[in-house]
Computed example of a mutant assay.
Amino acid sequence: MSVVDKTKSALSGDKHDYYSMGPYWWPDPSKPNGEPYIRRDGVVNPERNGEGFDADRLSRLSDNVSNLALAHFYTGDLRYAQKAAQLIRVWFLDADTKMNPNLSYAQAIPGVTAGRAEGIIDGHRFIPVIESIGLLAPSAVLSQTEMRDLERWFGDLALWMATSPTGQEERAKSNNHGIFYDLLIAQFSLFARQPQIATQVISSFPETRMSRQFSADGSLPEELTRTRSWHYSHWTLGAIGKLAGLGECVGLDLWRTNLPDGRGLARSLSFMTKYVARENTWTFPETAFQPGGNLNSAREIAMETFWIAGWGFSDRSYSALGSFYSSQVTGSDVKFWLSSFQSNAQ
């Protein structure tokens, strides 16, 4: 499984460049070839997940490596770890198949742009891979040289994020994209043994994000304008929780950091808590709550948010809310992964 397997190429012509399409962009039926594509917010074009692009391939890599690493962790069977290491080598290390450490051509829009700053968020699928590498480390299935090369790869990706015009544009976003930028560059930098970058990002979060993106009532106003406002509110809070977890690695407590007026993660979680088991009172746009909507997905994202909050705040009331949603979620890998750790945490 490799970026070179896709049937299309990015504008660069280099199959080693990651290439994806914006999820909510569709052919314009009024144009002979459908281009330029037009936006339908919240409605995913299945073309994005086809063999021509890398998004689905990266998603499968992330899931497979995570599942294999967890299987090894719980069973001790070295075969799982060896297979995970093989997948990692193909995607990140082998000269013939590895991905170039940039996201310049992520979330392209046919007829509009060859790649967008918003595409950096595709990199969130690397987070489970990094966590899995940590689980695999004691097995020594990746050599010390390979570990150093992986650290260098993610360090190069973080450097590209910090210095490229694409990365700088994404950092300036005032919605979930800006917050995910912070999470990703902090995660990649920590893995690359550059904790000073994560420290800078996390310590500045109150000024750069809370003061600009958190409302007085705890809501995230940019997310409430979306057609999937419930999803994006929870997804963004989950990202902040993960960033707060990284803060613990550098001695910073983002969990309990508040602005002078009280805005902070706890208040934003309280805003969402009001709607637990009362989704019918959610007055903002959300396709999941419409007839035929994907309620399972909406409940899954809430489950993850509250379980993360429960761990971070050591607060069983948040954990209980996560378990409430877990009881309603079916067919979820996220539920499987998190529930095992949740059981150990209680």
Rank of each mutant, 00 (worst) to 15 (best):
A108T: 06
F188W: 10
S314G: 05
H124K: 13
W230Q: 06
E51H: 11
S268G: 10
R212Y: 13
P101Y: 11
S343A: 14
S326I: 04
G115N: 01
N258S: 14
S211M: 15
M99S: 12
S339M: 14
D77S: 14
R209M: 05
L254Q: 08
E146K: 04
T236V: 01
T283I: 14
T257I: 03
S317E: 10
D54I: 06
F313S: 08
Y232N: 04
E169L: 09
E131Q: 15
G218N: 08
F336N: 12
W311P: 00
W230R: 09
S66F: 09
W282Y: 12
R209P: 05
S211Q: 15
G238N: 08
S339R: 14
T166C: 02
R152G: 00
L259G: 11
V201H: 02
A320E: 15
A158R: 12
L61R: 09
S340N: 15
D54T: 06
P101E: 12
P260N: 13
V201A: 05
A84D: 06
W337A: 12
D96R: 07
W337C: 07
K98W: 00
D315A: 04
G50T: 07
S215E: 15
G178H: 06
A69Y: 11
D94F: 00
E286C: 10
V129F: 07
I197E: 01
M1P: 09
I202H: 01
L68V: 08
F205A: 03
D122Y: 01
L338A: 15
I38F: 00
R278K: 14
W337Q: 13
A108S: 15
W26M: 05
A277C: 03
Q107D: 03
P195F: 11
D17H: 12
A172K: 14
A302F: 06
S30Y: 02
G247M: 03
L135E: 13
F271Y: 15
N296I: 10
M21V: 11
G322M: 04
F306M: 02
W235L: 12
P138Y: 13
S104P: 00
T281M: 10
S132P: 13
A239C: 07
I202Q: 01
E207G: 04
Y37V: 05
R40I: 06
